[in-house]
Design a protein around this nucleic acid. Structure first.
Lengths: 334, 334
DNA sequence: TTGTATGCGTTATCAT
DNA sequence: ATGATAACGCATACAA
């Protein structure tokens, strides 16, 4: 402790916290001592005394590049406000989410960014007390949840308007797991958009799957087996879309000549992919940035933190085109 | 404070830390009280008293999916030993690495996993004191650095043996930035392997670039412009390899019929890619897991923590084949 | 087996 | 403008 230069600990604490309260002369003296002795205030003691950790949890369901982009924005905002953010992996396990919240209750962190689409059991009761929390990207069906995300249904509309505008009449949807609200929203947007365009909807036009390549590849084959011969596909994310392209190739269909495909997310790895995938961009960085900014305000007990919807945008590349005039009979899959 | 049930704080502290020291009867009483009152020990006070944070920094140069896989293993090991790991983004900025180390000095974390390939200035002097540190994946040229990584030169040998075994004689290398030790090592392995195979080496056979698609695409064109007509390419990572494939296509070359290409890393997004890329697998999860295990021991002051080299493995897919017999004249690039 | 007392390194509240 | 001192909430050595 640097108080060994004739001053009290209070003084040296002051030069660090409120330098203007201390005489310039002694201030300089202390500063120099700090420099030469290589003194650093012990963060733990600081945190205990102030009762704040300046740390937030960012709870994600799995480790994926998508969340990494969100994290980028989160980190940017965190840095601006002197926070660190601990990205923790819930491994799709509700129990683990619960555990992370218990850590927050134990004052390990000041707040949480929740991107799991699920609430831990302890937060569900109507009178449950929530630690400072912002719902991120993946909305949750609870009015208490301040949310920063995009409008998934509207995003689906955007994709469908593009397809309808090109003249497609037989459009199908390959979706993600319907237990997530965002998947349901995208699907709802798909249905609405079809009706808006005066196109008939049938449950057979939408398949539920997982957010992976395999889902897309299988789904496209299934559609044709079921006698549905789409000229366009709206996939619930980019991986599914890539799988759909592969499936189409296996059926001997060319993209976009025989079938148009639009994805969702606009992930980075698409840059390496040919043909360039038409997709809906999600402003991941902004979502993360805005969410963290809001969390900081919430931690500071700001009462009027509100939800935010960020805009999506269609990125037209090479996998969408006018529908074929004639009919194309697909090969049997290999 | 739960001591309001006739006991002292010391006792309740004991039932949590060393339950065997307390009479089973009172132990149960305390446990129940903890349960009903929803008591949780304040982490900050605990940390201050014990002088440990149970937190480690994982410093990465950028946020990338590759590091995310390493993080997965890190997290697994961390969880097993009751640690949290804060992945922090150095943004390729040495100053930021330095700042993170200062946070460790301020007792914000117990140790660091360093994956930047660079040491902060404060650790460079020969008599500098290092906080518990493990060098991860990206080796550093300092004898004090305990390292968990693969042998990049050997990995290059593995790739080259495959190519030579197929009968290729004109093999080139598209590398990453030579300021990183791992890039230099891969390139060294490339040269050595050529010589081992009795093939002539010339500096023109290796191009330095960045770890991106564009580098690969441009490089392949450059080789042909320079009159070098490779039948096989060893790329320093998967993105470069994908770029090389694209470049080859632009030149009217088919992969692997006209030119073979092998990548490096075996990243996940390759699953969505056709043709399947032949590449060298890096055990990312294991690297992270082993590194974190070692860091925990280091934090516990274990003196005989040693470096570790993990094995790489060639993943043969569809982008490598026997060289063409006849000669193929490339088109002018578009 | 349990209680008492001190330390951990700050911040913050009184005094002076 | 600065010092003394009580929190902060737990761990632990020492007593009882």
């Amino acid at each position: 402790m640097a108080a060994a230069l004739g001053l009290s600990v209070a003084t040296i604490s002051r030069v660090l916290a409120r330098p203007e309260m201390v005489k310039p002369e002694t201030r300089k003296r202390v500063m120099k001592a700090i420099e030469t002795m290589g003194y650093r205030p012990n963060f733990l003691a600081q945190a205990l005394a102030r009762s704040e950790t300046r740390l937030a949890f960012f709870i994600v369901p799995i480790l994926s590049p998508f969340f990494l982009d969100v994290m980028d924005g989160v980190e940017q905002a965190a840095q601006e406000d002197g926070y660190f953010v601990l990205m923790v992996n819930a491994r799709r396990d509700l129990q683990r989410i619960q555990t992370f919240y218990e850590q927050v209750a134990a004052r390990r962190a000041d707040g949480v960014l929740l991107l799991t689409g699920l609430l831990p059991p302890s937060l569900i009761p109507p009178k449950a007390v929530w630690p400072p929390t912002i719902i991120v990207a993946e909305p949750i069906d609870d009015p208490r949840g301040i949310t920063v995300a995009v409008d998934h249904a509207e995003a689906a509309h955007i994709a469908l308007r593009h397809l309808c505008g090109l003249g497609h009449k037989k459009i199908v949807h390959i979706g993600g797991p319907l237990r997530t609200l965002s998947s349901r929203e995208r699907r709802r947007g798909f249905e609405e958009a079809l009706r808006d365009a005066g196109l008939p909807f049938s449950p057979k036009l939408a398949i539920e799957g997982n957010f992976d390549v395999e889902t897309g590849e299988k789904a496209i084959v299934t559609f044709f087996e079921n006698g549905i011969e789409p000229t366009a596909v709206f996939a619930a994310n980019d991986e599914i879309a890539l799988g759909a392209i592969r499936g189409a190739h296996r059926l001997g269909l060319r993209v976009p000549d025989d079938i148009s495909i639009v994805g969702f997310d606009n992930q980075h790895f698409l840059e390496a992919f040919e043909p360039g995938l038409t997709t809906v961009n999600i402003p991941r960085f902004d979502i993360g940035y805005q969410a963290m900014k809001r969390l900081v305000r919430k931690i500071a007990n700001d009462k009027d933190v509100t939800s935010l919807r960020l805009p999506t945008e269609l990125i037209v590349r090479e996998t969408t085109a006018l529908p074929r005039i004639g009919k194309k009979t697909p090969k049997k899959p290999m």
